[in-house]
């Protein structure tokens, strides 16, 4: 029976936690993820539907909600869809990420 309900479909599940009231200000990188999503979904690009992104988040697995925060789930889903659509390759992504990490290491004091 539990397999019948997909993990993201959580309305009415027992939960004794109060609704958390602490809020955080959105960080620049979170806004950039949001902006990437909006641009990829616009009429000019039409590369990513909201449903594709939701599906990608659901497919990260039930523990993604514990392991990743909101925009980490978004960028993971967006990236997977762009790979699947051959917008870029795994190799291109890997090299670019390594390049960015190297830039960080080299950052002067």
């Amino acid at each position: 029976m539990t397999d019948r309900r997909r993990h993201h479909d959580m309305g009415g599940l027992p939960d004794s936690e109060p609704v958390p009231t602490r809020e955080h200000l959105f960080e620049p990188w979170e806004k950039r993820v949001d902006a990437i999503k909006a641009l990829l979904s616009d009429d000019k690009r039409n590369l990513l539907t909201t449903d594709e992104m939701r599906r990608g988040i659901e497919d990260l697995g039930a523990d993604a909600y514990e392991r990743y925060n909101y925009y980490e789930r978004w960028i993971s889903s967006i990236t997977n869809t762009l790979l699947q659509k051959k917008v870029f390759t795994v190799d291109e992504l890997g090299r670019k990420m390594a390049e960015i990490e190297a830039r960080q290491e080299d950052k002067p004091l």
Binding site: N46, T49, T50, D51, E52, R54, R55, K85
Partner: peptide, 9 residues
């Protein structure tokens, strides 16, 4: 959405 989610636009 059951189609849109899988790239059927």
């Amino acid at each position: 959405p059951e189609e849109l989610a899988y790239g059927v636009y």
